[in-house]
Amino acid sequence: MMIEPKTLKQIEKKLEEDISKEIELIKSEVFFILDKDLDIYFLKEFAKYYPRKLLKEKAEILLDTLLNYLMKEVLEKIKSMHLDQQYEFFKENLRNKIRTKAFSENGSFKPQPVKIKEDEGLLDKTITAAPGIAVSAGGIIATMAIPETVPLKAIPAISSLVGPIYIIKKLKDKNRRLKNIWKKQINSYLKLAKNDLKKWLLDMEAEFLKNLESFYKKTISSSFENVIDKSNTNFAKIKSI
């Protein structure tokens, strides 16, 4: 084995800490926005889509972090090996292999959609449409404000825009209640997502170790098992120049 089980455990521990930190960051970012006095329709969409989006983003960065940890350990070992073995390892391009796998259709991290309470009754009451015309106010405001060029994911499906008059009434208390419900829901969503994320990263770690193992078998255990070419300056030495 090129990475000791003990070291691997330490890496996983560090990774776990990183995951927790990143999940906390996502939470504080989402809550930061939710706490603001913004349009409730926007916030609803925000709460629905944003945590998932951030999770995907953070997953990629965490994968790089994991690869950094793993590579650091492996390279320490590789550095003391024969130049040809080092060269072979470099040609293997392990980091890229794992990244490619991680972002492939089958291997990528796919967080679940966020399910939040959609109290349509409460939302609809905020809108007084022109007599006889029911409209979704969030949709209207958004359609009007956004020029064609802006891709807007946070806008709910736009209802048929026929309503001529609308007024937004501020129902702050009700909104606050709704926001608190969303926060709780996001909290539990992130808890679950954290586990999924961890599992995905550990799968990637396993993939890395599998590849490493096969490289080791292919290159090192065949002809040059444990050969260390003392005549070659090792890279730890070069590094310290």
Binding site: I33, L38, D39, F42, F46, I141, A142, M144, A145, I146, V150, L152, K153, A154, Y166, I167, I168
Partner: peptide
Amino acid sequence: DEEAFFKTLKNNLIES
């Protein structure tokens, strides 16, 4: 409602 418009504009800026 210009206030509503401005609010929406903000939301969308955050989004983009």
